Simulated scan of single mutants.
Amino acid sequence: MNEKFFDLKKEKQDRIINAALRAFALGGYLHASTDDIVKMAGISKGLIFHYFETKLGLYQFIYDYSIRVINLEITTGVSRDITDFFTIREEIERVLSICMEQYPYIQLFLYNAEAEDTPEAASAILQTREGYEAMIRSILDRGDITRFKPEANYQIIDDMIQMVNKEILERMFREGVFQPDGYYEEVMKYMNMLRAISYD
């Protein structure tokens, strides 16, 4: 984490973070342009390289920062007492929607970073990504799977949730209608349907 960056005013930090999140979420590491990032952020290109040295340094910082933001929210926003699989999933999605109020592209960026195929970028975030995935898995593992029908494989259900949520986000951004509350409401429609058909 580049501590010098945090000496900037919070509003300027967020402009840079949001510009980078948008560029990396929509273009991946390879196609994201630092020229576009500085234009969206309203800063000089020299400032980016002053704080992050390289595009790869910026990418790694943005990924690490995103995970830190989400981890902080999950720590306080997902109850350890809840054991229902779908309720845990709902709480995670609620936390993510809260994060997206400040950083709209944060979750789409993380989804696409999972599939990042530029070797140096994938390698730069690997350790943090694996730690984050293990943390989410440990939360989901608290879920009681005994309520699932024998023919309803909860791991496949979880994969379906991930795929549907990513598609909802991509569609909302593509259509220019993204709102965190609207995203959460739509996600809940699918989640409630899956709960209804998966549980005895």
Rank of each mutant, 00 (worst) to 15 (best):
Y59M: 09
G57D: 06
L26S: 14
D64E: 13
I43W: 10
V38P: 02
I48T: 05
H31G: 13
D64K: 03
L26H: 08
F49N: 09
Q60G: 05
K45V: 04
L26V: 13
K39P: 03
G28H: 09
Q60V: 08
Q60F: 03
T34I: 14
G57M: 01
I62F: 06
S44R: 00
F52R: 01
S44N: 03
A32R: 03
Y29M: 07
F61T: 01
T34K: 08
I37C: 06
G27P: 11
Y51P: 05
S66W: 01
Y63N: 05
S33Y: 08
Q60E: 08
D64A: 06
E53K: 04
Y51W: 05
T34Q: 05
D36K: 14
F49C: 11
Y65A: 03
G57F: 04
S66E: 04
I62R: 02
I37D: 00
L26Y: 07
L26E: 13
G27Y: 14
G46Y: 00
S66M: 09
S44E: 02
L58M: 08
I62G: 02
I43A: 14
G28W: 01
F49I: 05
L30I: 15
V38H: 00
T34L: 09
L58I: 11
G27F: 15
I43L: 12
Y29P: 12
T34S: 12
D35A: 15
Y59W: 13
G46W: 02
Q60A: 02
K39G: 10
D36Q: 15
S33D: 13
L56G: 07
K45I: 06
D35V: 14
E53L: 06
I43M: 14
L30N: 15
H31N: 13
L47S: 09
A41K: 02
L58H: 03
L56C: 02
H50M: 07
Y51I: 04
I43E: 08
L58D: 04
G27C: 15
D35I: 13
G57T: 04
I62E: 00
T54P: 05
I48A: 04
G27V: 08
D35H: 14
M40L: 11
E53F: 01
H31P: 07
K39C: 13
K39S: 11
L26C: 13
S66G: 12
G57A: 10
I48Q: 02
H50Q: 11
L30K: 15
L30S: 14
H50G: 10
Y65W: 06
K45T: 09
F61Y: 00
I62A: 00
A41L: 09
H50V: 10
S44Q: 11
Y65P: 03
G27K: 11
H50W: 06
Q60C: 07
T34V: 12
A41N: 00
S33N: 15
I43Q: 10
K45Q: 08
L26N: 05
K55I: 02
I37K: 04
I37Q: 12
L30W: 15
D35F: 15
V38G: 01
F49G: 01
Q60L: 02
G28M: 07
G42I: 07
E53T: 08
G57W: 03
H50R: 15
Y63K: 03
Y63C: 02
Y51L: 03
M40I: 05
I62W: 07
S33V: 08
F49L: 09
